[in-house]
C-alpha cells in the first residue's frame, strides 16, 4: 500500500494506492498524524480510495479511528472515489451516515466549502 497527499488550501487529500488491508492499512494513522502536525490550519481531510484495490475490516477500523481523531480536532473527514463494492460495504454498516462519501475530490471540496460558508 502506498500513501501520498496533496494540500489544497485548507484541505488535504490523502491518496491510498493498493491494498488497504490489515497490517498495511495501519500505516495510515501515523501518516495522518504527521500531516496534522505539519499542517495545523487544516479544515478538511479527504481520503481518496480511487486507487485502493481492497479494503478489509482493519481498513474500516483505521478509517473510523482517523475520523474520531480528526473530529476531536474539528477537522472534517470525507471519502471519495470508492469502488462500488467498498461503497456497498460502508453503506451496509451505515458508515456513510458518519463519514460522507463523494464521487470526486471536487465534489467534496465544493460541498464542504458550502457548508462552512
Amino acid at each position: 500500500m502506498n500513501l501520498s497527499h496533496r494540500i489544497l488550501n485548507e484541505a488535504c487529500i490523502v491518496e491510498v494506492e493498493g491494498e488497504f488491508i490489515g497490517y498495511k492499512a495501519r500505516q495510515l494513522t501515523p501518516y495522518i498524524d504527521t500531516i496534522l502536525l505539519k499542517n495545523t490550519e487544516l479544515k478538511i481531510l479527504i481520503l481518496n480510495l480511487g486507487s485502493a484495490i481492497q479494503m478489509d475490516s482493519v481498513g474500516i477500523g483505521i478509517m473510523l479511528k482517523s475520523y474520531k481523531v480528526l473530529q476531536e480536532q474539528q477537522i472534517q473527514f470525507a471519502l471519495c472515489q470508492l469502488h462500488d463494492e467498498m461503497i456497498d460495504f460502508l453503506k451496509f454498516i451505515r458508515i456513510d451516515s458518519m463519514i460522507p462519501i463523494y464521487d470526486t475530490e471536487e465534489d467534496v471540496i465544493k460541498k464542504l466549502k458550502e457548508e462552512v460558508s
Binding site: 494513522t29 482493519v58 474500516i60 477500523g61 460495504f89 454498516i93
Partner: peptide, 17 residues
C-alpha cells in the same frame, strides 16, 4: 482470512486499533 473479514464487515464489525 479474507472471507472471514468480509463476513465480519457484513455483520457491521470492524477491527479497531
Amino acid at each position: 482470512q479474507i472471507q472471514i473479514d468480509r463476513n465480519l464487515i457484513k455483520m457491521g464489525v470492524c477491527q479497531v486499533p
